[in-house]
Design a protein around this nucleic acid. Structure first.
Lengths: 151, 151
DNA sequence: GGGATATCGTTCGTATACGAACGAGGATCA
DNA sequence: TGATCCTCGTTCGTATACGAACGATATCCC
C-alpha cells in the first residue's frame, strides 16, 4: 500500500508532498553518519569526534574553562563534562581551579596530550579530505559556506 | 598562548593549517544540532527526529520488517530496536511476526499512529522550512544536492 | 552591605548511535 | 539430508546529546 488511508481524508494539501528522504534533517543525519564512520576508520576507534574536537581546540588556543570549552566545541555543560572526564582518565588533559574565579575549572592539554594531538593532526586532515572526496573542489567550498549559514 | 609548543617542533607542514572551525564534520555537527533544536521546538519534546523518521516512513510505505525499517531510516539494528520499543510503549506502532519468515518482525503504524502522523505532517514540513530559512531558494536545492552526495 | 540575578560545574534521566556477540531461522549447495 | 553461510532480532557496553534541577560562587545595583 502506498498510503494507509484514502486520499480524500487528507484535509491539507501538504500531506501529499512530504517525503522523508527529501528532508534536509534526514539527509544531513545520513551525511553526518558517513562522516563519523570515516572518522572512526582513519582516527581509530579509541578517539571520538567530540573528543578530538576538544583536543584540537585546546591545541589551537590553549586551556579554557570547562563550560567555555564546551561552547567552543558545540557541547552543552553536561556533555562537555563527560568528554573531559574521559580525556582526564586517559591523562590527555589536566584540570586546575581558576585562581581568578572560584567557579571555574581550567582544562588544558597535558604534555602527553600535546604530543598525541600533534601526531593525529595529519589524520584529522585526511578525515576531512575523504569526507569531501565525492565533491568537486568548488563544490566543497560551497557546501561549507551553506552549512555555516545553518548554524 | 597561540600554540602549546614552538613552531619549530612541527615535523609536517600540515600542522599549521588545521583549524577545527573549518572542518566539515564540525560544521555539519553544529548545523545538525540547530536542526534538532528547531525540530524539538516545532514538533514538541514528546517526539524525537528518529522516532518521526520511523512514523513518516511507515506512513508513506506501510509496514516492513524491523531491520529493513532501520535501513530505510538510517539506523542500525540495535538503534531501531530501541526506537520501535518506545513507539510500541506509546501504542503508535504495532508488531506481528512475518508469516513467511520466522526471523522477521513486521512493524506497522497502529490506527492511532496513522492519525498522529497525519496530524504532524504539516509541522514536519515547517521544520524543514525553518531549518532552511537562512538560505536563498536556489541555495536550498544546492545544499540538499551536495549533502546527498555525501551519504 | 546585601539582595537579586547570572554563571559555573555537577548530577540525573532519557534517547540516539553503534560495535560486538549471541541464538534462532532461512538459503544454498554438495 | 546435512553442513555452511547469511540474515534477523536481541542484548550489552560505551559515548554523545541535552533538558532540568541543584549548590556554590560572581556580579550588579540599590
Amino acid at each position: 500500500m502506498a498510503r494507509p488511508s484514502s486520499a480524500a481524508e487528507a484535509p491539507e494539501p501538504a500531506d501529499e508532498s512530504y517525503d522523508l528522504a527529501e528532508q534536509v534533517g534526514f539527509i544531513m543525519r545520513q551525511a553526518a553518519q558517513r562522516h563519523v564512520s570515516i572518522f572512526n576508520e582513519i582516527m581509530g576507534s579509541d578517539l571520538t569526534p567530540t573528543q578530538w574536537a576538544v583536543l584540537a581546540r585546546l591545541y589551537q588556543d590553549g586551556g579554557s574553562s570547562q563550560n567555555l570549552l564546551g561552547r567552543q566545541t558545540a557541547m552543552d555543560a553536561a556533555t562537555i563534562k563527560g568528554v573531559v572526564d574521559r580525556l582526564l582518565k586517559r591523562k590527555l588533559v589536566q584540570t586546575k581551579p581558576d585562581p581568578e574565579d572560584g567557579r571555574r575549572l581550567i582544562v588544558e592539554l597535558s604534555p602527553a596530550g600535546v604530543d598525541y594531538t600533534r601526531e593525529l593532526l595529519p589524520k584529522a586532515e585526511t578525515v576531512t579530505k575523504v569526507t569531501l572526496a565525492p565533491l568537486a573542489t568548488n563544490q566543497r567550498a560551497t557546501l561549507i559556506a551553506l552549512l555555516k549559514q545553518l548554524r
